[in-house]
Design a protein around this nucleic acid. Structure first.
Length: 330
DNA sequence: AAATTGGGCAACCGCCTTGCA
DNA sequence: TTGCAAGGCGGTTGCCCAATT
């Protein structure tokens, strides 16, 4: 007997969000700030439940989200952290501020898990079993929740976990001899991939537009003209240019990996540019405080255990001959 | 060219945690 | 202390699309 749903099932819209809905939500958050999700649907008129609004914001609309291909650094970071923390995606995401937990979770499930399986095979039965256990149990696999274990069992398990974490870390370290795989910082404006909420919405447009041809119902007033190309995307970008994005190269419509082939696809839009730009004119300045911040300042403090693991592993790294690179891991 | 299959990902579901009255 | 509401989180689903048959 679970709790009743957070909102009435009747009249609640499900499925993909439209840019219109995105704008409404972002405008609302611009005025009221994130939080108080309960009142968001009623105040905005969105036919979405509060959880859906929150999820949309945290996973896609929030400023500072990096999307697209994961870098090798990020991969290594995730692999290490997953070994260390298990499937605690939110915790892992806190070490990769530009990525969402959902993103990391999906990437793990669709890419990294396969890579690791391929690499490790089934030879290491113990590790395999452990990993599966960790995967299936997720957050319940933490030592503190192993209520049925005796203290001795728990300690042995902890030792094993620490050993595995060390191993994973050493493997990660052995790839490029960098002491710690800190996330790649936006070192220069030309390479940065930070995006504001407006950018996020703009970036989502091509995908949405390409699919919208099926949604012929799309309000004809709102989406009237159909055009081809990236010119429009760059136009939108310009319209959505925000203080935060000004210093950075925007992903949308440029040489990014995000849009894949979609950039080449046709899409329709009127997306009421003027309104949108108005709506977003001050948006990022409001959200800058809220967004996930600069990595150097924001790198969460390592726990004692993590510090110890990292320090210990760093000293061992030079001694290690393990090279995942040599084993064609990447 | 049509049908099938599989991968990727956005979004939903339901349980857990937290904060508050 | 207890119960409720809201937010947080991880697992899972379902859709879309590209590759394959």
């Amino acid at each position: 007997m679970g709790r009743p749903p957070c909102c009435d099932k009747i009249g609640v819209k499900k499925g993909p969000w439209t840019p219109e809905e995105d704008i409404i939500l972002v405008s609302y958050i611009q005025k009221n700030g994130p939080g108080n999700w309960r009142s968001a649907p009623t105040n905005t008129g969105l036919l979405r439940c509060s959880k859906s609004c929150r999820l949309r914001w945290t996973n896609y609309l929030r400023p500072g989200i990096k999307r697209g291909n994961f870098t090798e650094q990020e991969e290594k970071m995730i692999i290490h952290l997953q070994a260390l923390l298990g499937n605690r995606w939110a915790a892992i995401a806190s070490y990769l501020p530009q990525r969402t937990d959902n993103d990391i979770k999906n990437y793990w499930n669709t890419h990294l898990k396969k890579k690791l399986d391929k690499l490790q095979g089934n030879s290491d039965e113990e590790n395999h079993h452990h990993r599966r256990h960790s995967d299936s149990k997720g957050r319940h696999s933490s030592p503190s929740s192993e209520t049925t274990m005796t203290k001795g069992q728990w300690e042995r398990r902890l030792q094993t976990d620490i050993h595995m974490a060390k191993q994973a870390l050493c493997e990660a370290l052995s790839i490029d001899n960098k002491s710690i795989n800190l996330p790649d910082l936006p070192t220069s404006p030309s390479t940065a991939t930070y995006a504001s909420s407006a950018d996020n919405i703009a970036r989502l447009l091509p995908n949405w537009m390409s699919s919208s041809k099926k949604c012929s119902q799309m309000s004809s007033e709102s989406f009237e003209t159909c055009q081809t190309t990236q010119t429009q995307s760059s136009l939108i970008n310009q319209q959505f240019q925000s203080p935060l994005s000004e210093g950075y190269t925007l992903q949308f419509g440029s040489n990014n990996n995000l849009n894949h082939n979609n950039q080449q696809k046709n899409y329709c839009s009127n997306y009421s540019h003027s309104d949108a730009s108005q709506s977003f004119s001050a948006e990022t300045s409001v959200f800058q405080d809220e967004s996930k911040p600069n990595m150097t300042d924001q790198m969460p403090p390592l726990s004692f255990l993590e510090k110890w693991l990292l320090d210990d592993a760093a000293t061992q790294a030079d001694l290690m001959n393990l090279s995942l690179e040599e084993s064609n891991f990447f």
